[in-house]
Design a protein around this nucleic acid. Structure first.
Length: 474
RNA sequence: GGCGAGGUGGCCAAGUGGUAAGGCAGGGCUCUGCAAAAGCUCUAUCGCGGGUUCGAUUCCCGCCCUCGCCUCCA
C-alpha cells in the first residue's frame, strides 16, 4: 500500500516514495518559539505527524526533520520586553512546545535543529549566493536575494514577480514605509538583516557586518544540512507557500542547482466558530484553554483529523464534545477486543497484518483522507463488535483483529489512554456505597433515593455486575 | 484585481456517472429492579440556473455565497 499525497507544486496526487530507495526524507517548518502554540499551529503539526505515521505504517523508513525558529523579529522583541536573554526566552517556549507535542501524541522528529545553532551554515549559504550573483548587499547593510536573477521564482505559488510588485495595493502608510527599503525590487527578500539598535545583544558577526539571518534562510540551511541538497518532501501551513517556501526554493536551488524538495505538502488553515482564528478576535485556543473547558489533547487531535487536511476545518467546542464521545467508543471497543491502554500501538509492514482494518489504512493512504479512515474504522468496529457479542471472533481471528486495531491506532496516533479518573468526594463515595448495599438488599426505594443524592452532588453511578463506578456528571 | 479552496441531513464530515460512509445530537429497541453506561436501529437527493448523458450530487458553462494567500501568520 503506497501513500498518495497532493503535491502543491504540480497540483496532482503523487506517490510517496524515497528518492534514494531507502529512507523517505522530509522537512516540516516548525514553530517560532515566542509563546504557546495554538490549535491552528497544531492542525499542521498533527497532520504532519499522521503523514509520517501512515508512511511508516506502510513499511517505509523515514527521516523527519522539524526546526525551531528561535531568532526572528518576534522572539527578539518579546525577550527584550521581558528582560531575559533570547536563549532563556526561547528555551522556555521550546519546552512548552515539546510538552504539548507529547500530549498530542506527536512522534519526535529525528532531528530538531534550531536556527541560532546554525548561524554559520546560514552565513555560508548567503555567501555562496552573493558569490554566484544571486544576492547583493544594499545600502542599509542587509543582504537581499535578487528575485530577478532566479527565473523559476514563483513556480510553487504561481505568483509572478510582476504581480508581486504591481498588483499589491498597499495602503498609503505601507507605501511610504516600503520606500524606505533599499531593495532593488519589492519582491527581493532579506537573507541577512543588518543590526538595528532594537536588536539589543542579539547579533552575529558576518562578512556583511553584524546582524542576524533572515527568516527564510534558516530552513534552507537546516534542511540541506540534515536532509541533503535534495530531499523528498517539505511541508507546512498553506500560508507558508508564499513567500516562505517560494523563497526557500529560490535560495536553495540558486545555490545548489538541484531540486530542493521533490514534493510539497501544505495543510489548510483552521477556522474557529466560522471565523479566521486571530488574537484580536479572541478565538485563539491553546491546549491550556481547552483543558480548562474539560478537553484533552487527544480529543483535540481527534477533532483535527476529523476533517481532510486540504479542507477548511471549522473548530468549535461542540466538535470537541463529539470527539470526546467518539474516543470513548473507540476505547470501549479496544477493551472489548481484549486490549488495554498498555498495549503498544505498532506500525505494520504488511497488508495482511491489518486484517479487517485494511480499509482504514487504505483510506489514510489516499491523500491522507483521515475522515474517511475514521468512518471506515467505525464501520469495521460495528461489524467486529457484533461478532464479539455472538462469540464468533476468537482464536487466530481475534489475534489478527487485535493486531490490526493496534496498527490503526499507530497510524492515526490515537493512544486511547484511560481518562483521568476524577476522585469523587468521600461523602459521595459513601452514599454510592450505601446505595449499592441497598440495591443488593433489593431495597429499591432506598437505593433510588441514595442515587438521587449522588446525582444531586454532581456524580453519576455506572453499575456493573460486580460493583459500581462514579463518573463526574458532565 | 491575481491565484487558490469550498458550499452534502439539526451540527460536523467523507464519497461516487447509476439515486449518498462515519461521528455527534434526536427518536425507537435490547440490556437493566428502574436508571446510567453499553449495544442495535431510524432520519438527506448533495448552493441556484442551464448543458452533456439512457442516467449527475458527482462532468461542462453561468450565477450567488463563504473562506484562504498576495512579503515574514501553521
Amino acid at each position: 500500500m503506497d501513500l498518495q499525497i497532493y503535491d502543491t507544486e504540480t497540483r496532482k496526487l503523487q506517490t510517496v516514495s524515497p528518492m534514494d530507495g531507502d529512507t523517505f526524507r522530509f522537512y516540516c517548518c516548525g514553530p517560532t518559539v515566542y509563546g504557546p502554540a495554538h490549535i491552528g499551529n497544531f492542525r499542521t503539526f498533527v497532520l504532519q505527524d499522521v503523514f509520517r505515521r501512515v508512511i511508516e505504517a506502510t513499511g517505509l523508513k523515514t527521516r523527519h526533520v522539524r526546526n525551531l525558529t528561535d531568532v526572528d523579529d518576534k522572539t527578539i522583541r518579546e525577550s527584550q520586553n521581558e528582560g531575559v536573554s533570547l536563549k532563556d526566552f526561547t528555551d522556555q517556549w521550546r519546552d512548552k512546545f515539546h510538552a504539548d507535542c507529547e500530549a498530542l501524541g506527536l512522534l519526535s522528529p529525528a532531528v530538531e535543529p534550531s536556527a541560532v545553532e546554525h548561524i554559520p551554515e546560514q552565513i555560508e549559504l548567503i555567501a555562496d549566493l552573493v558569490e554566484k550573483g544571486y544576492a547583493y548587499q544594499a545600502d542599509d547593510g542587509s543582504v537581499y536575494f535578487d528575485v530577478s536573477s532566479f527565473p523559476k521564482y514563483g513556480r510553487l505559488s504561481r505568483l509572478s514577480e510582476r504581480e508581486i510588485t504591481t498588483d499589491t495595493a498597499p495602503s498609503e502608510g505601507e507605501r511610504e514605509s516600503s520606500d524606505e527599503y533599499d531593495r532593488d525590487s519589492a519582491a527581493d527578500f532579506a537573507l541577512w538583516k543588518a543590526y538595528r539598535d532594537e536588536d539589543g545583544p542579539n547579533f552575529w558577526e558576518s562578512p556583511w557586518g553584524k546582524g542576524r539571518p533572515g527568516w527564510h534562510i534558516e530552513c534552507s540551511a537546516m534542511a540541506m544540512k540534515h536532509l541533503g541538497k535534495s530531499f523528498d518532501l517539505h511541508s507546512g501551513g498553506v500560508d507558508l507557500i508564499f513567500p516562505h517556501h517560494e523563497n526557500e526554493i529560490a535560495q536553495s536551488e540558486a545555490s545548489t542547482g538541484q531540486t530542493f524538495a521533490r514534493l510539497w505538502f501544505h495543510v489548510t488553515h483552521l477556522m474557529v466558530d466560522g471565523a479566521k482564528m486571530a488574537k484580536s478576535l479572541g478565538n485563539l485556543y491553546t491546549l491550556e484553554d481547552l483543558a480548562e473547558k474539560g478537553f484533552t489533547a487527544e480529543e483535540l487531535r481527534y477533532t483535527l483529523i476529523s476533517a481532510h487536511y486540504r479542507q477548511p476545518l471549522n473548530f468549535t467546542l461542540e466538535s470537541m464534545s463529539a470527539s470526546k464521545k467518539a474516543i470513548g467508543r473507540l476505547r470501549d471497543f479496544r477493551d472489548k477486543l481484549g486490549l488495554s491502554a498498555e498495549a503498544a500501538p505498532a506500525p505494520t509492514a504488511t497488508v495482511d497484518e491489518l486484517g479487517p482494518f485494511q480499509p482504514v489504512l487504505k483510506a489514510a493512504t489516499a491523500d491522507l483522507n483521515t475522515p474517511e479512515a475514521l468512518g471506515q474504522l467505525f464501520t469495521v468496529i460495528k461489524q467486529l463488535s457484533r461478532q464479539l457479542d455472538e462469540g464468533a471472533l476468537a482464536g487466530e481471528e481475534l489475534a489478527v483483529a487485535q493486531k490490526g486495531f493496534l496498527a490503526v491506532q499507530y497510524a492515526l496516533g490515537l493512544a486511547l489512554a484511560e481518562p483521568e479518573k476524577a476522585a469523587a468526594p468521600q461523602e459521595v463515595v459513601d452514599l454510592a456505597q450505601q446505595r449499592w448495599e441497598a440495591k443488593q438488599a433489593k431495597d429499591w426505594a432506598a437505593a433510588d433515593s441514595l442515587r438521587d443524592q449522588v446525582t444531586a452532588a454532581g456524580w453519576q453511578i455506572k453499575d456493573a455486575p460486580d460493583g459500581f463506578e462514579l463518573l463526574p456528571l458532565s
